[in-house]
């Protein structure tokens, strides 16, 4: 280390040496601080994802959602129920239903007119048609979609002000009082589950009807589904219906290659469903 300098012998060299030393120290300790801070960020509370050394009491309730695409009849009740329950603005959906139609020539046509709100009438405006009109489809099915409430959420990760957050039960929510409306989370969500609400100018999304589920009710879409294609419940309770279904079915998630770990899982997902 250089000796303390009197005013007179502050040469360029020693001055730069001092600046360099201080800079290097700041860089090293700052780097250590940031790395430590990042490593200590709250992890998800699900058993198995919590690092072993951080003993954290497992929460009693972790919600999960299963969509059984083999049961969905495409009636759109869930979309209507969601819109009514959550006051979803026109042109946006917290949940929607996609219709997949396959043709013998290998073509796949996907439709979701108004998010499937009114079902799937053949004369819906802007309906996508196969290139070769008149050919008969070989098979088809419906896929209801909603927020996946991912365990490793890209949307919460990017929110600059911490307005997006996860509840202890694993539900991903937005605090409209804090959201600045930058739209970064909308860009970061791989599933198109988020939108900017034109009435509040803040990010909006499916909450799994948090206001209902915390009172012991089911989400509106689950409540209204006539085909029991939507199953919601506590995955930490081994006796719940969802635990039984998860234990006895092969389930998949959307875009698993992105590693977001969705809590919304699907039965009967086809590889053409993106």
């Amino acid at each position: 280390m250089t000796q303390p300098l009197s005013d007179g012998d502050l040469t360029r060299r020693s001055f730069l040496e001092r600046v360099a030393t201080t800079g290097a120290q700041t860089f090293i300790f700052g780097g250590l601080f940031v790395t430590t801070a990042l490593m200590r960020l709250p992890q998800d509370a699900t058993p198995g994802t919590t690092p072993a050394k951080r003993k954290k009491r497992a929460p009693e309730v972790i919600y999960g959602f299963v969509v059984d695409t083999t049961k969905c009849i495409g009636c759109g009740s869930c979309v209507r129920a969601c819109k009514a329950e959550n006051n979803v603005p026109d042109g946006f959906c917290r949940t929607w239903v996609e219709e997949y139609t396959f043709y013998p020539n290998g073509e796949v046509v996907v439709n979701s007119p108004k998010g499937g709100e009114n079902g799937f009438p053949d004369d819906a405006p802007d309906r996508n048609q196969p290139a070769e009109i008149g050919q008969l489809p070989s098979r088809g099915f419906f896929v209801p979609k909603l927020c996946n409430h991912c365990i490793d959420t890209p949307c919460i990760q990017v929110c600059p002000v911490g307005a997006s957050y996860k509840t202890p039960e694993g539900v991903v929510l937005v605090d409209p009082q804090r959201c600045v409306g930058c739209g970064y989370c909308v860009q970061a969500c791989p599933f198109g589950s988020r939108f900017l609400n034109p009435e509040t100018n803040t990010a909006d999304k499916c909450t799994w009807c948090y206001h209902r589920i915390t009172k012991g009710l089911k989400p509106a879409c689950v409540e209204c589904c006539p085909a029991e294609a939507r199953i919601f419940g506590n995955v930490n309770d081994p006796n719940s219906e969802i635990s039984r279904i998860l234990a006895t079915n092969r389930v998949q998630v959307l875009k698993s290659y992105l590693g977001t770990n969705p809590r919304t899982r699907y039965i009967g997902l086809d590889s053409d469903v993106i």
Binding site: A37, L38, L41, I156, Q157, V158, C159, P160, V161, G162, R178, C179, V180, G181, C182, G183, Y184, L196, T200, N201, T202
Partner: peptide, 24 residues
């Protein structure tokens, strides 16, 4: 382009450390 420009400074008052944007 912010939906709530009046909250812009929250990016420095309550920054979310995992957000690239919070560094701005």
């Amino acid at each position: 382009h912010l939906g709530h420009p009046e909250r812009a400074l929250n990016i420095m008052f309550t920054p979310n450390l995992t957000s690239a944007m919070a560094g701005f």
